[in-house]
Write a protein that binds this DNA or RNA. Structure first.
Lengths: 109, 109
DNA sequence: AATGTTTATCGTAATATTGCAATATTAAAA
DNA sequence: TTTTAATATTGCAATATTACGATAAACATT
């Protein structure tokens, strides 16, 4: 096969997996770090920052957009991408909650 | 192609992507949530908990193990898996740092 | 209107991931 | 030692992801 059986898992589990998938490629991490760094919406110079061809970057941007993490505004003939702070905060909480669910009293291993 | 050009990105970016990839499948999230919940190292009943065949679960366990997130101890003829708290804590910090790097002063979008 | 710039989409190739049946391995139990 | 139970590995099919050249679409500029 190869198709994930997402219908057999909880909504929450699928949500976490989907967000994680958006972060699961160094190019997308690089895009997000760039957007975090420049502290302003930056357009197509993301392409110049990355060691990838323009269509590839466009594809990664699309995935981040589909995940809701970034949004794009038309600005002249360029497009201005930036992080959606609301979604970013939501995702931060989801991961924080997951990571904090650990129980410190070891029983074995 | 299809092969990630990981050599063109920073170590940190690749690290984040690798950790995220481990969380990027609902089955693996389900395994981790189960291990978090039972608060003890649980062995092969992970297979019974998941809607997947034994070899598939074994494969997901292997990926989590390769990512360093869990470790397996032989316990009789069963194997006891549990979360590596040190790695868990390290990963928690990595994501916390990433998520907190956001700058609240919006400039556009 | 013609041209240039920027970004998206299409088509396609290479590779990776997911899933499972069959089988191997390992160690306990009989 | 044979059997049984638990887990891993192999082999393979289906699907997804990554990457990019070619091209299209959108818009500004000339």
């Amino acid at each position: 096969m190869g198709a994930t059986k997402s219908d057999h898992f909880t909504q929450k589990q699928n949500d976490i997996a989907t967000i994680a998938k958006a972060f699961a490629h160094p190019a997308r991490v690089a895009i997000l770090e760039y957007l975090l760094k420049v502290d302003a919406c930056i357009c197509g110079d993301i392409v110049n920052e990355l060691p990838l061809a323009q269509p590839t970057v466009s594809q990664h941007l699309k995935e981040l957009k589909n995940a809701g993490i970034i949004s794009g505004n038309i600005e002249g003939n360029a497009i201005c991408y930036c992080i959606d702070e609301k979604v970013w905060e939501k995702n931060r909480k989801i991961f924080e909650t997951l990571f904090e669910r650990i129980n410190k009293k070891k029983t074995c291993c």
